[in-house]
Design a protein around this nucleic acid. Sequence first.
DNA 1: CGTCCTCTTGATTCCCTTCAATATGAGTGG
DNA 2: CCACTCATATTGAAGGGAATCAAGAGGACG
Lengths: 244, 244
Amino acid sequence: MVNAFVRKLSGLADLAEEDVATLVASTRQTRHFPARRDLIREGDRPGPVFVVLSGWACRYKILPSGTRQITSFMLPGDSCDLHIAILDEMDHSIQTITKAAIATISRPAMEDMLDRSPRIGRALYAAQLIDEATLRAWIVSMGRRSSMERVAHLMCELYVRLQGVAGASPSSTVELPVSQLLLADALGMSPVHINRVIRRLREAGVMEISRRSLRITDPVGLVHVAGFDENYLHRRLKTIATIY
Amino acid sequence: MVNAFVRKLSGLADLAEEDVATLVASTRQTRHFPARRDLIREGDRPGPVFVVLSGWACRYKILPSGTRQITSFMLPGDSCDLHIAILDEMDHSIQTITKAAIATISRPAMEDMLDRSPRIGRALYAAQLIDEATLRAWIVSMGRRSSMERVAHLMCELYVRLQGVAGASPSSTVELPVSQLLLADALGMSPVHINRVIRRLREAGVMEISRRSLRITDPVGLVHVAGFDENYLHRRLKTIATIY
DNA sequence: CGTCCTCTTGATTCCCTTCAATATGAGTGG
DNA sequence: CCACTCATATTGAAGGGAATCAAGAGGACG
Protein backbone atom coordinates (compact mmCIF):
# COMPACT_ATOMS: atom_id res chain seq x y z
CA MET A 1 0.00 0.00 0.00
CA VAL A 2 1.50 3.29 -1.05
CA ASN A 3 0.78 6.44 0.90
CA ALA A 4 -0.93 9.68 -0.13
CA PHE A 5 2.36 11.32 -1.00
CA VAL A 6 3.20 8.64 -3.53
CA ARG A 7 -0.33 8.69 -4.91
CA LYS A 8 -0.17 12.40 -5.46
CA LEU A 9 3.26 12.41 -7.10
CA SER A 10 2.29 9.46 -9.28
CA GLY A 11 -0.33 11.69 -10.81
CA LEU A 12 2.24 14.33 -11.68
CA ALA A 13 4.94 12.26 -13.35
CA ASP A 14 5.48 8.74 -14.57
CA LEU A 15 7.22 7.18 -11.63
CA ALA A 16 9.16 3.97 -11.95
CA GLU A 17 8.74 1.22 -9.40
CA GLU A 18 12.04 2.12 -7.86
CA ASP A 19 10.86 5.72 -7.50
CA VAL A 20 7.87 4.55 -5.57
CA ALA A 21 10.11 2.45 -3.37
CA THR A 22 12.39 5.43 -2.78
CA LEU A 23 9.49 7.68 -1.86
CA VAL A 24 7.97 5.12 0.46
CA ALA A 25 11.31 4.65 2.17
CA SER A 26 11.87 8.38 2.51
CA THR A 27 8.56 8.86 4.26
CA ARG A 28 8.91 5.91 6.55
CA GLN A 29 9.78 8.10 9.48
CA THR A 30 6.41 9.50 10.45
CA ARG A 31 5.21 11.25 13.56
CA HIS A 32 1.66 11.59 14.76
CA PHE A 33 0.40 14.96 15.92
CA PRO A 34 -2.81 15.99 17.61
CA ALA A 35 -4.99 18.70 16.11
CA ARG A 36 -3.94 22.34 16.39
CA ARG A 37 -0.28 21.62 16.92
CA ASP A 38 2.35 23.85 15.33
CA LEU A 39 4.85 21.90 13.25
CA ILE A 40 7.04 24.95 12.78
CA ARG A 41 6.61 28.59 13.63
CA GLU A 42 7.31 31.88 11.94
CA GLY A 43 10.87 32.90 12.74
CA ASP A 44 12.06 29.34 13.21
CA ARG A 45 14.94 28.02 11.20
CA PRO A 46 13.56 25.84 8.43
CA GLY A 47 14.11 22.18 9.13
CA PRO A 48 13.29 19.10 7.12
CA VAL A 49 10.60 18.95 4.47
CA PHE A 50 7.20 18.10 5.92
CA VAL A 51 4.95 15.65 4.17
CA VAL A 52 1.34 15.21 5.21
CA LEU A 53 0.43 11.55 4.99
CA SER A 54 -2.95 11.79 6.69
CA GLY A 55 -4.99 14.56 8.22
CA TRP A 56 -5.07 18.24 7.37
CA ALA A 57 -2.67 21.08 8.13
CA CYS A 58 -2.42 24.71 7.13
CA ARG A 59 0.07 27.49 6.70
CA TYR A 60 -0.87 30.69 8.46
CA LYS A 61 0.35 34.01 9.67
CA ILE A 62 -0.67 36.02 12.71
CA LEU A 63 -0.93 39.78 12.32
CA PRO A 64 -0.01 42.38 14.91
CA SER A 65 -3.72 42.91 15.55
CA GLY A 66 -4.01 39.27 16.54
CA THR A 67 -6.07 38.22 13.54
CA ARG A 68 -4.99 35.21 11.56
CA GLN A 69 -4.76 34.56 7.87
CA ILE A 70 -4.42 31.06 6.52
CA THR A 71 -2.50 31.05 3.27
CA SER A 72 -2.95 27.45 2.24
CA PHE A 73 -4.33 24.11 3.22
CA MET A 74 -2.10 21.07 3.26
CA LEU A 75 -4.04 17.93 2.48
CA PRO A 76 -2.84 14.33 2.58
CA GLY A 77 -0.04 13.99 0.05
CA ASP A 78 0.99 17.63 0.23
CA SER A 79 4.47 18.68 1.24
CA CYS A 80 6.21 21.96 1.75
CA ASP A 81 8.81 23.53 -0.52
CA LEU A 82 11.57 21.12 -1.35
CA HIS A 83 14.24 23.78 -1.03
CA ILE A 84 12.82 25.42 2.05
CA ALA A 85 16.15 24.90 3.81
CA ILE A 86 17.72 27.60 1.67
CA LEU A 87 15.93 30.31 3.61
CA ASP A 88 17.16 31.71 6.88
CA GLU A 89 13.90 31.63 8.70
CA MET A 90 10.27 30.78 8.25
CA ASP A 91 8.02 33.64 7.24
CA HIS A 92 4.93 31.73 8.32
CA SER A 93 3.82 28.93 10.60
CA ILE A 94 2.43 25.50 9.84
CA GLN A 95 -0.15 23.91 12.07
CA THR A 96 -2.16 20.73 12.04
CA ILE A 97 -5.91 21.15 11.70
CA THR A 98 -6.80 17.58 12.58
CA LYS A 99 -4.88 14.68 13.98
CA ALA A 100 -2.20 14.12 11.39
CA ALA A 101 0.57 11.77 10.40
CA ILE A 102 3.55 13.79 9.24
CA ALA A 103 6.65 12.43 7.60
CA THR A 104 9.84 14.44 7.49
CA ILE A 105 12.51 14.26 4.84
CA SER A 106 15.89 15.59 5.86
CA ARG A 107 17.72 17.92 3.57
CA PRO A 108 20.43 15.40 2.61
CA ALA A 109 17.80 12.75 1.96
CA MET A 110 15.89 15.17 -0.23
CA GLU A 111 18.96 16.11 -2.23
CA ASP A 112 19.92 12.50 -2.60
CA MET A 113 16.48 11.70 -3.90
CA LEU A 114 16.57 14.57 -6.42
CA ASP A 115 19.97 13.40 -7.61
CA ARG A 116 18.93 9.84 -8.05
CA SER A 117 15.63 10.26 -9.82
CA PRO A 118 14.83 13.02 -12.25
CA ARG A 119 11.26 11.73 -12.32
CA ILE A 120 10.81 12.36 -8.63
CA GLY A 121 12.33 15.79 -9.09
CA ARG A 122 9.96 16.52 -11.88
CA ALA A 123 6.97 15.46 -9.85
CA LEU A 124 8.06 17.55 -6.88
CA TYR A 125 8.61 20.61 -9.04
CA ALA A 126 5.23 20.15 -10.65
CA ALA A 127 3.69 19.94 -7.19
CA GLN A 128 5.43 23.14 -6.21
CA LEU A 129 4.25 24.95 -9.34
CA ILE A 130 0.71 23.82 -8.62
CA ASP A 131 1.03 25.15 -5.09
CA GLU A 132 2.11 28.48 -6.50
CA ALA A 133 -0.77 28.52 -8.91
CA THR A 134 -3.06 27.87 -5.97
CA LEU A 135 -1.59 30.83 -4.11
CA ARG A 136 -2.31 33.00 -7.14
CA ALA A 137 -5.84 31.66 -7.33
CA TRP A 138 -6.34 32.63 -3.69
CA ILE A 139 -5.13 36.14 -4.42
CA VAL A 140 -7.61 36.36 -7.26
CA SER A 141 -10.37 35.11 -4.97
CA MET A 142 -9.61 37.54 -2.20
CA GLY A 143 -9.19 40.44 -4.57
CA ARG A 144 -11.95 40.13 -7.06
CA ARG A 145 -14.48 37.52 -6.05
CA SER A 146 -17.58 38.14 -3.97
CA SER A 147 -17.96 36.24 -0.74
CA MET A 148 -20.33 33.75 -2.36
CA GLU A 149 -17.93 33.12 -5.20
CA ARG A 150 -15.02 32.91 -2.80
CA VAL A 151 -16.54 30.25 -0.60
CA ALA A 152 -17.78 28.29 -3.61
CA HIS A 153 -14.37 28.54 -5.23
CA LEU A 154 -12.54 27.22 -2.20
CA MET A 155 -14.95 24.32 -1.97
CA CYS A 156 -14.32 23.49 -5.61
CA GLU A 157 -10.59 23.63 -5.04
CA LEU A 158 -10.66 21.43 -1.97
CA TYR A 159 -13.01 18.99 -3.62
CA VAL A 160 -10.83 18.58 -6.69
CA ARG A 161 -7.67 18.34 -4.63
CA LEU A 162 -9.17 15.71 -2.39
CA GLN A 163 -10.39 13.70 -5.35
CA GLY A 164 -6.98 13.92 -6.94
CA VAL A 165 -5.30 12.33 -3.99
CA ALA A 166 -7.81 10.13 -2.33
CA GLY A 167 -7.90 7.92 -5.37
CA ALA A 168 -11.31 7.03 -4.13
CA SER A 169 -14.33 6.63 -6.33
CA PRO A 170 -15.91 9.95 -7.18
CA SER A 171 -18.46 10.94 -4.60
CA SER A 172 -20.49 14.05 -4.15
CA THR A 173 -19.51 14.08 -0.48
CA VAL A 174 -16.05 14.62 0.93
CA GLU A 175 -14.79 15.01 4.45
CA LEU A 176 -14.19 18.62 5.38
CA PRO A 177 -12.68 18.74 8.84
CA VAL A 178 -12.63 22.51 9.20
CA SER A 179 -14.72 24.77 11.39
CA GLN A 180 -16.38 27.86 9.96
CA LEU A 181 -13.97 29.92 12.00
CA LEU A 182 -11.13 28.28 10.12
CA LEU A 183 -12.79 28.96 6.80
CA ALA A 184 -13.12 32.57 7.87
CA ASP A 185 -9.39 32.74 8.55
CA ALA A 186 -8.69 31.21 5.18
CA LEU A 187 -11.03 33.39 3.17
CA GLY A 188 -10.43 36.67 4.95
CA MET A 189 -13.99 36.98 6.16
CA SER A 190 -15.76 37.02 9.50
CA PRO A 191 -17.11 33.73 10.87
CA VAL A 192 -20.58 35.21 11.01
CA HIS A 193 -20.55 36.06 7.37
CA ILE A 194 -19.12 32.69 6.37
CA ASN A 195 -22.09 31.15 8.08
CA ARG A 196 -24.55 33.28 6.14
CA VAL A 197 -22.86 32.57 2.85
CA ILE A 198 -22.92 28.85 3.48
CA ARG A 199 -26.58 29.14 4.19
CA ARG A 200 -27.20 30.99 0.96
CA LEU A 201 -25.30 28.34 -0.96
CA ARG A 202 -27.37 25.67 0.71
CA GLU A 203 -30.59 27.53 -0.09
CA ALA A 204 -29.39 27.89 -3.67
CA GLY A 205 -29.17 24.11 -3.73
CA VAL A 206 -25.56 23.84 -4.83
CA MET A 207 -23.78 22.56 -1.72
CA GLU A 208 -24.21 21.71 1.91
CA ILE A 209 -21.79 21.64 4.80
CA SER A 210 -22.71 19.64 7.84
CA ARG A 211 -21.09 17.30 10.26
CA ARG A 212 -17.63 18.14 9.00
CA SER A 213 -18.42 17.10 5.49
CA LEU A 214 -19.06 18.83 2.21
CA ARG A 215 -21.80 17.61 -0.04
CA ILE A 216 -21.99 19.03 -3.53
CA THR A 217 -25.60 18.82 -4.57
CA ASP A 218 -25.24 20.65 -7.88
CA PRO A 219 -21.67 20.43 -9.24
CA VAL A 220 -22.37 22.39 -12.38
CA GLY A 221 -24.13 25.09 -10.41
CA LEU A 222 -21.33 25.29 -7.87
CA VAL A 223 -18.68 25.57 -10.53
CA HIS A 224 -20.77 28.26 -12.11
CA VAL A 225 -21.22 30.47 -9.08
CA ALA A 226 -17.53 29.99 -8.21
CA GLY A 227 -16.33 30.90 -11.66
CA PHE A 228 -14.12 27.92 -11.11
CA ASP A 229 -11.58 27.10 -13.77
CA GLU A 230 -9.61 24.16 -12.56
CA ASN A 231 -6.90 24.64 -15.12
CA TYR A 232 -4.83 26.27 -12.46
CA LEU A 233 -4.59 22.99 -10.65
CA HIS A 234 -2.98 21.67 -13.78
CA ARG A 235 -4.75 18.38 -13.71
CA ARG A 236 -5.39 16.67 -16.93
CA LEU A 237 -7.78 14.42 -15.13
CA LYS A 238 -11.50 14.29 -15.05
CA THR A 239 -13.06 17.54 -14.08
CA ILE A 240 -15.51 18.14 -11.32
CA ALA A 241 -18.15 18.95 -13.89
CA THR A 242 -17.64 15.87 -16.00
CA ILE A 243 -17.55 13.41 -13.16
CA TYR A 244 -21.30 13.50 -13.00
CA MET B 1 28.39 46.36 -16.25
CA VAL B 2 26.20 43.50 -15.08
CA ASN B 3 22.44 43.64 -15.49
CA ALA B 4 19.65 43.72 -12.92
CA PHE B 5 19.22 39.96 -13.04
CA VAL B 6 22.81 39.38 -12.03
CA ARG B 7 22.64 42.06 -9.37
CA LYS B 8 19.59 40.46 -7.84
CA LEU B 9 20.98 36.93 -7.85
CA SER B 10 24.29 38.16 -6.48
CA GLY B 11 22.43 39.23 -3.39
CA LEU B 12 20.96 35.77 -2.93
CA ALA B 13 24.07 33.61 -3.24
CA ASP B 14 27.81 33.98 -3.49
CA LEU B 15 28.32 33.87 -7.19
CA ALA B 16 31.71 33.18 -8.70
CA GLU B 17 32.98 35.29 -11.54
CA GLU B 18 32.24 32.51 -13.96
CA ASP B 19 28.67 32.41 -12.70
CA VAL B 20 28.27 36.07 -13.47
CA ALA B 21 29.68 35.47 -16.92
CA THR B 22 27.29 32.59 -17.45
CA LEU B 23 24.31 34.64 -16.39
CA VAL B 24 25.30 37.59 -18.51
CA ALA B 25 25.69 35.32 -21.51
CA SER B 26 22.36 33.62 -20.90
CA THR B 27 20.51 36.91 -20.90
CA ARG B 28 22.25 38.35 -23.90
CA GLN B 29 19.28 37.68 -26.10
CA THR B 30 16.93 40.48 -25.11
CA ARG B 31 13.85 41.87 -26.75
CA HIS B 32 12.30 45.26 -26.20
CA PHE B 33 8.58 45.55 -25.64
CA PRO B 34 6.29 48.54 -25.45
CA ALA B 35 4.06 49.07 -22.44
CA ARG B 36 0.92 46.93 -22.03
CA ARG B 37 2.11 44.11 -24.19
CA ASP B 38 1.35 40.52 -23.24
CA LEU B 39 4.45 38.35 -23.09
CA ILE B 40 2.40 35.22 -22.66
CA ARG B 41 -1.26 34.57 -22.10
CA GLU B 42 -3.34 32.29 -19.95
CA GLY B 43 -3.82 29.02 -21.77
CA ASP B 44 -0.62 29.37 -23.78
CA ARG B 45 1.97 26.66 -23.65
CA PRO B 46 4.78 27.80 -21.34
CA GLY B 47 7.85 28.83 -23.31
CA PRO B 48 11.24 30.03 -22.19
CA VAL B 49 11.91 31.64 -18.84
CA PHE B 50 11.35 35.39 -18.93
CA VAL B 51 13.79 37.71 -17.24
CA VAL B 52 12.98 41.37 -16.77
CA LEU B 53 16.13 43.41 -17.32
CA SER B 54 14.51 46.82 -17.30
CA GLY B 55 11.00 48.14 -16.92
CA TRP B 56 8.08 46.64 -15.05
CA ALA B 57 5.76 43.75 -15.81
CA CYS B 58 3.00 41.97 -13.95
CA ARG B 59 1.22 38.66 -13.76
CA TYR B 60 -2.53 38.90 -13.93
CA LYS B 61 -5.72 37.04 -14.45
CA ILE B 62 -8.98 38.16 -16.01
CA LEU B 63 -12.19 36.95 -14.43
CA PRO B 64 -15.39 36.02 -16.23
CA SER B 65 -16.89 39.31 -15.07
CA GLY B 66 -14.12 41.12 -16.89
CA THR B 67 -12.38 42.43 -13.80
CA ARG B 68 -8.68 41.92 -13.49
CA GLN B 69 -6.53 40.80 -10.61
CA ILE B 70 -2.80 41.34 -10.67
CA THR B 71 -1.03 38.65 -8.68
CA SER B 72 2.50 40.00 -8.71
CA PHE B 73 4.76 42.68 -10.00
CA MET B 74 7.89 41.78 -11.87
CA LEU B 75 10.61 44.37 -11.37
CA PRO B 76 14.00 44.58 -13.06
CA GLY B 77 15.93 41.47 -12.14
CA ASP B 78 12.86 39.33 -11.63
CA SER B 79 12.22 36.19 -13.60
CA CYS B 80 9.46 33.64 -13.76
CA ASP B 81 9.56 30.11 -12.43
CA LEU B 82 12.60 28.24 -13.58
CA HIS B 83 10.66 25.07 -14.16
CA ILE B 84 7.65 26.67 -15.72
CA ALA B 85 8.08 24.44 -18.76
CA ILE B 86 6.89 21.47 -16.75
CA LEU B 87 3.32 22.67 -16.85
CA ASP B 88 0.98 22.09 -19.73
CA GLU B 89 -0.40 25.57 -19.96
CA MET B 90 -0.18 28.95 -18.32
CA ASP B 91 -2.78 29.61 -15.66
CA HIS B 92 -2.20 33.36 -15.89
CA SER B 93 -0.89 36.01 -18.24
CA ILE B 94 2.18 38.21 -18.06
CA GLN B 95 2.13 41.73 -19.39
CA THR B 96 4.54 44.61 -19.51
CA ILE B 97 3.54 47.67 -17.52
CA THR B 98 6.14 49.99 -19.00
CA LYS B 99 8.52 49.73 -21.89
CA ALA B 100 10.67 46.78 -20.94
CA ALA B 101 13.73 44.83 -21.95
CA ILE B 102 13.03 41.13 -21.58
CA ALA B 103 15.56 38.36 -21.86
CA THR B 104 14.49 34.81 -22.49
CA ILE B 105 16.30 31.70 -21.38
CA SER B 106 15.41 28.56 -23.24
CA ARG B 107 14.69 25.41 -21.34
CA PRO B 108 17.88 23.62 -22.40
CA ALA B 109 19.95 26.69 -21.55
CA MET B 110 18.33 26.87 -18.15
CA GLU B 111 18.96 23.21 -17.43
CA ASP B 112 22.51 23.50 -18.60
CA MET B 113 23.03 26.44 -16.29
CA LEU B 114 21.57 24.60 -13.32
CA ASP B 115 23.80 21.63 -14.05
CA ARG B 116 26.93 23.66 -14.31
CA SER B 117 26.61 25.91 -11.31
CA PRO B 118 24.99 24.91 -8.03
CA ARG B 119 25.43 28.49 -6.90
CA ILE B 120 23.23 29.79 -9.68
CA GLY B 121 20.72 27.10 -8.89
CA ARG B 122 20.73 28.09 -5.28
CA ALA B 123 20.21 31.75 -6.12
CA LEU B 124 17.34 30.94 -8.47
CA TYR B 125 15.64 28.72 -5.92
CA ALA B 126 16.02 31.39 -3.28
CA ALA B 127 14.44 33.88 -5.67
CA GLN B 128 11.55 31.51 -6.24
CA LEU B 129 11.01 30.96 -2.54
CA ILE B 130 10.95 34.72 -2.03
CA ASP B 131 8.39 35.04 -4.78
CA GLU B 132 6.26 32.48 -3.03
CA ALA B 133 6.62 34.29 0.26
CA THR B 134 5.50 37.44 -1.50
CA LEU B 135 2.42 35.67 -2.79
CA ARG B 136 1.61 34.62 0.75
CA ALA B 137 2.13 38.16 1.97
CA TRP B 138 -0.34 39.37 -0.64
CA ILE B 139 -2.90 36.85 0.55
CA VAL B 140 -2.43 38.10 4.08
CA SER B 141 -2.84 41.68 2.89
CA MET B 142 -5.97 41.00 0.94
CA GLY B 143 -7.48 38.90 3.67
CA ARG B 144 -6.74 40.70 6.86
CA ARG B 145 -5.38 44.16 6.24
CA SER B 146 -7.42 47.34 5.94
CA SER B 147 -7.17 49.34 2.75
CA MET B 148 -4.76 51.80 4.37
CA GLU B 149 -2.54 49.01 5.61
CA ARG B 150 -2.76 47.24 2.29
CA VAL B 151 -1.62 50.18 0.23
CA ALA B 152 1.11 51.04 2.72
CA HIS B 153 2.26 47.44 2.76
CA LEU B 154 2.54 47.22 -0.99
CA MET B 155 4.53 50.43 -1.07
CA CYS B 156 6.91 49.06 1.54
CA GLU B 157 7.31 45.88 -0.46
CA LEU B 158 7.97 47.63 -3.73
CA TYR B 159 10.34 50.07 -2.09
CA VAL B 160 12.41 47.35 -0.49
CA ARG B 161 12.43 45.26 -3.64
CA LEU B 162 13.52 48.20 -5.74
CA GLN B 163 16.26 49.08 -3.32
CA GLY B 164 17.43 45.48 -3.28
CA VAL B 165 17.98 45.46 -6.98
CA ALA B 166 18.72 48.95 -8.04
CA GLY B 167 21.94 48.86 -6.10
CA ALA B 168 21.49 52.59 -6.01
CA SER B 169 22.13 54.72 -2.99
CA PRO B 170 19.22 54.69 -0.58
CA SER B 171 16.75 57.38 -1.44
CA SER B 172 13.38 58.26 -0.04
CA THR B 173 12.05 58.49 -3.59
CA VAL B 174 11.70 55.67 -6.07
CA GLU B 175 10.14 55.50 -9.49
CA LEU B 176 6.68 53.97 -9.43
CA PRO B 177 5.45 53.65 -13.00
CA VAL B 178 1.97 52.40 -12.16
CA SER B 179 -1.38 54.13 -12.49
CA GLN B 180 -3.88 54.09 -9.66
CA LEU B 181 -6.04 51.83 -11.76
CA LEU B 182 -3.21 49.33 -11.81
CA LEU B 183 -2.78 49.57 -8.08
CA ALA B 184 -6.49 48.92 -7.76
CA ASP B 185 -6.17 45.76 -9.82
CA ALA B 186 -3.25 44.65 -7.69
CA LEU B 187 -4.82 45.36 -4.33
CA GLY B 188 -8.34 44.22 -5.11
CA MET B 189 -9.86 47.64 -4.54
CA SER B 190 -11.67 50.20 -6.67
CA PRO B 191 -9.61 52.96 -8.30
CA VAL B 192 -11.68 55.57 -6.51
CA HIS B 193 -10.89 54.15 -3.13
CA ILE B 194 -7.21 53.75 -3.95
CA ASN B 195 -7.17 57.43 -4.67
CA ARG B 196 -8.72 58.30 -1.34
CA VAL B 197 -6.39 56.03 0.59
CA ILE B 198 -3.37 57.57 -1.09
CA ARG B 199 -4.68 60.94 -0.08
CA ARG B 200 -5.11 59.87 3.50
CA LEU B 201 -1.58 58.51 3.57
CA ARG B 202 -0.33 61.80 2.17
CA GLU B 203 -2.31 63.74 4.75
CA ALA B 204 -0.91 61.48 7.44
CA GLY B 205 2.51 62.57 6.26
CA VAL B 206 3.94 59.12 5.62
CA MET B 207 4.16 58.93 1.83
CA GLU B 208 3.32 60.74 -1.36
CA ILE B 209 2.68 59.49 -4.86
CA SER B 210 2.99 61.92 -7.69
CA ARG B 211 4.35 62.05 -11.17
CA ARG B 212 4.89 58.30 -11.27
CA SER B 213 7.13 58.31 -8.25
CA LEU B 214 6.80 57.26 -4.64
CA ARG B 215 8.27 59.44 -1.92
CA ILE B 216 8.40 58.03 1.56
CA THR B 217 8.29 60.99 3.89
CA ASP B 218 8.11 59.02 7.14
CA PRO B 219 9.61 55.52 6.76
CA VAL B 220 9.03 54.49 10.34
CA GLY B 221 5.46 55.74 10.19
CA LEU B 222 4.80 53.96 6.92
CA VAL B 223 6.21 50.67 8.18
CA HIS B 224 4.04 51.11 11.23
CA VAL B 225 0.74 51.67 9.48
CA ALA B 226 1.56 48.84 7.07
CA GLY B 227 2.44 46.41 9.83
CA PHE B 228 5.31 45.65 7.52
CA ASP B 229 7.66 42.88 8.50
CA GLU B 230 10.16 42.50 5.75
CA ASN B 231 11.35 39.16 6.96
CA TYR B 232 9.24 37.57 4.31
CA LEU B 233 11.44 39.06 1.65
CA HIS B 234 14.25 37.14 3.29
CA ARG B 235 16.77 39.87 2.95
CA ARG B 236 19.51 40.00 5.45
CA LEU B 237 20.26 43.48 4.23
CA LYS B 238 19.58 46.82 5.71
CA THR B 239 15.95 47.36 6.51
CA ILE B 240 13.80 50.17 5.32
CA ALA B 241 13.56 51.45 8.87
CA THR B 242 17.27 51.42 9.57
CA ILE B 243 18.31 53.07 6.36
CA TYR B 244 17.37 56.38 7.82
C1' DC C 1 -24.17 17.56 33.99
C1' DG C 2 -21.63 21.56 33.44
C1' DT C 3 -18.32 23.76 30.38
C1' DC C 4 -16.57 25.17 26.23
C1' DC C 5 -16.56 25.43 21.41
C1' DT C 6 -19.06 25.90 17.31
C1' DC C 7 -22.98 27.24 14.86
C1' DT C 8 -26.84 30.28 14.00
C1' DT C 9 -29.52 34.40 13.64
C1' DG C 10 -30.75 39.47 14.46
C1' DA C 11 -29.53 44.43 14.66
C1' DT C 12 -26.46 48.11 13.91
C1' DT C 13 -22.54 50.40 12.01
C1' DC C 14 -19.24 51.47 8.62
C1' DC C 15 -16.00 50.63 4.98
C1' DC C 16 -15.88 50.43 0.35
C1' DT C 17 -18.11 50.20 -4.20
C1' DT C 18 -20.65 52.33 -7.57
C1' DC C 19 -22.28 56.17 -10.09
C1' DA C 20 -21.38 60.69 -11.61
C1' DA C 21 -19.00 64.84 -12.76
C1' DT C 22 -14.96 67.54 -13.29
C1' DA C 23 -10.02 68.34 -13.58
C1' DT C 24 -5.52 67.43 -15.27
C1' DG C 25 -2.20 65.97 -18.45
C1' DA C 26 0.00 63.56 -22.28
C1' DG C 27 -0.08 62.60 -26.99
C1' DT C 28 -1.79 63.65 -31.78
C1' DG C 29 -2.78 66.07 -35.76
C1' DG C 30 -4.00 70.31 -37.99
C1' DC D 1 1.52 76.42 -31.51
C1' DC D 2 -2.88 75.27 -30.46
C1' DA D 3 -7.42 72.48 -30.57
C1' DC D 4 -8.74 67.79 -29.80
C1' DT D 5 -8.90 63.38 -27.71
C1' DC D 6 -8.24 60.00 -24.47
C1' DA D 7 -6.37 58.18 -20.24
C1' DT D 8 -5.73 59.23 -15.59
C1' DA D 9 -6.68 61.57 -11.36
C1' DT D 10 -9.79 63.71 -8.11
C1' DT D 11 -13.81 64.60 -5.44
C1' DG D 12 -18.92 64.19 -4.07
C1' DA D 13 -23.06 61.50 -3.09
C1' DA D 14 -25.58 57.35 -2.43
C1' DG D 15 -26.12 52.51 -1.74
C1' DG D 16 -24.70 47.93 -0.38
C1' DG D 17 -21.99 44.29 1.51
C1' DA D 18 -19.58 42.76 5.28
C1' DA D 19 -17.85 43.51 10.09
C1' DT D 20 -19.09 44.01 14.61
C1' DC D 21 -21.88 43.43 18.59
C1' DA D 22 -24.99 40.51 20.90
C1' DA D 23 -27.56 36.54 22.27
C1' DG D 24 -29.16 31.94 22.02
C1' DA D 25 -28.90 27.03 20.43
C1' DG D 26 -26.65 22.83 19.58
C1' DG D 27 -23.06 19.46 20.43
C1' DA D 28 -18.71 17.34 22.12
C1' DC D 29 -16.26 16.02 26.08
C1' DG D 30 -14.44 15.28 30.62
